[in-house]
């Protein structure tokens, strides 16, 4: 048995790959649900119902989709240029921290339509800086950014913990380690009344569209893609590699930082060390499921959010640990890799 490269990739296969991958992951996770002694189909029914079944659950799922779109985009733009940004989790937290630090006191009494974009920019900038540092280490010293961005995630989480127990601690939180809340003007307007869904979702979808346009219609988008496909050839063709990688890092880190700022302003209002249940890491899966396509990221983020939100109710009803959502989503990354390979190669006896 061997692999033979297909001469061209049929577009239908590229669209089918994520569907097949998700179905395969659901089937494999179904084995675990069965091992847990629960009816598999009912479990999946309950997950879907728990994610979309009511007005409340549907808005919750969309609320959870918002940061996943942004961290998914962060991974997608980076991976496309082969910048291995695994630090979206850390960038998310510095973005959140920046928004909380600047948004907790409205010194100049700015109205919301000025303050909100300002805080979003601050969050994005913080995320950018956090990724530009390890990327510079790669460009200057040849240090693999995978390990440095991963290690920085732990440093950042400790830094957040230090800030919310120290200088940024909320004195009114009965001793709980949480940051001072952002002012009311910094709260994102709700998209639907009496729900947690906020306009951050629109911002995230707009980001996906903007990234799509950047990648397909601009010189920088083409240069980033060329740098990712074949760096030496791109350099030969006159692509300024270092500058392109830095721009990619700014875009990627900025998107992850923006996700953190939006989560603070839209959902919680303050920072805790459990603000993100692994949004940065899930973003990697979202990006891969979308085959690094910015528009596909929106759909993939919705799938991941559905699993995370829906599994809670299913878990309570059937006694299957809600970690099944994490297992399924992680499995879908692995099955997606194999499915993508099969769009490029065919198996020959």
């Amino acid at each position: 048995m061997r692999l033979e490269r297909r001469e061209q990739r049929a577009p239908v296969l590229v669209f089918a790959a994520p569907v097949v991958a998700v179905l395969a992951a659901l089937a494999l996770a179904g084995i675990l649900i069965a091992l847990a002694g629960a009816p598999v189909f009912e479990a999946y029914q309950r997950i879907v119902a728990g994610a979309f079944g009511s007005r409340l659950s549907f808005t919750e799922t969309l609320t959870r989709t918002t940061p996943l779109i942004l961290t998914g985009l962060a991974a997608a733009v980076a991976f496309r240029a082969r910048v291995w940004n695994i630090g979206a989790e850390g960038q998310f937290y510095v973005g959140a921290l920046a928004a909380a630090a600047l948004g907790s006191g409205n010194v100049f009494a700015l109205p919301g339509f000025v303050l909100i974009p300002l805080l979003m920019t601050a969050g994005a900038l913080a995320g950018m800086i956090l990724l530009v540092v390890p990327l510079s280490l790669r460009l200057r010293f040849g240090v693999d950014e995978v390990v440095t961005t991963l290690l920085l995630n732990f440093v950042v989480l400790l830094f957040v913990s230090m800030m919310i127990e120290g200088p940024m601690k909320d004195p009114l939180a009965f001793g709980w380690p949480q940051s001072v809340p952002v002012v009311a003007e910094a709260h994102l307007p709700k998209l639907i009344a009496r729900s947690r869904l906020h306009i951050g979702l629109l911002v995230a979808v707009c980001c996906a569209l903007v990234v799509y346009v950047i990648q397909t219609r601009t010189v920088f988008g083409m240069e980033a893609r060329a740098a990712g496909l074949n760096a030496p050839a791109a350099r030969f063709a006159g692509v300024p590699l270092a500058r392109t990688f830095l721009k990619v890092a700014c875009l990627s880190g900025g998107l992850a930082g923006l996700a953190g700022a939006i989560e603070v302003m839209g959902v919680k209002g303050y920072v805790t060390t459990d603000l993100s249940p692994g949004f940065g890491y899930s973003g990697i899966i979202v990006a891969m499921l979308a085959n690094l396509n910015p528009l596909g990221v929106v759909a993939a983020a919705l799938f991941a959010a559905m699993m995370f939100v829906g599994s809670d109710g299913m878990s309570r009803a059937l006694g299957v640990p809600s970690f099944i959502a994490d297992v399924t989503v992680a499995l879908s990354l692995l099955t997606m890799l194999v499915a993508l390979l099969l769009t490029q190669y065919r198996i020959r006896k």
């Binding site: 291995w84 990697i284 640990p321 994490d326 297992v327 992680a330 890799l337």
Partner: peptide, 17 residues
């Protein structure tokens, strides 16, 4: 890179499960 990260996410979530 991606496979390894996938294994990490899968193995740790399976452990918790």
């Amino acid at each position: 890179h991606v496979t390894g990260l996938g294994i990490t996410l899968f193995a740790s979530s399976l452990s918790y499960f």
